[in-house]
């Protein structure tokens, strides 16, 4: 297993991100700022925060570790034509080659 204990912090983080995408603390507040109700600005800022944290989740490798996989591997090496990282992940290579041996090198980028 390659999960890290520190990755567990992502579970409450996601819960908070989902829960407060709705501006509950501003319930009933009717102030307008810069042309829009303030609670709409809360939502806009919050979704920006989500995008940032989601990117961090992916970049930190927690995305892979969360599924019990080694960070930095990619089950099908299509995005980087070089298959170097994937060679360490034997199961993933099996998965890829059993389908279509030509695919990992194929440049079919539609």
């Amino acid at each position: 297993m390659t999960r890290l204990r520190s990755d567990l912090v992502w579970i409450p983080t996601f819960a908070i991100l989902v829960a407060f995408a709705v501006p509950w603390p501003l319930w009933g507040v009717d102030r307008v700022a810069a042309g829009l109700p303030v609670w709409i600005w809360w939502h806009v800022a919050w979704l920006g925060l989500c995008a940032g944290l989601f990117a961090l989740f992916v970049r930190s490798g927690a995305w892979e570790r969360g599924m019990g996989r080694r960070a930095g591997t990619d089950a099908v090496a299509a995005d980087s034509a070089a298959a170097d990282t994937v060679a360490t992940d034997s199961a993933a290579v099996d998965g890829a080659t059993s389908r279509d041996p030509s695919e990992p090198t194929g440049g079919d980028r539609r």
């Binding site: 979704l47 989601f54 995305w63 995005d79």
Partner: peptide
């Protein structure tokens, strides 16, 4: 999805 990288990028861009 062609690769996990595709899923990851889509995930982070989604809220915006």
């Amino acid at each position: 999805a062609k690769s996990a990288a595709t899923l990851k990028r889509s995930f982070a861009l989604w809220p915006v």
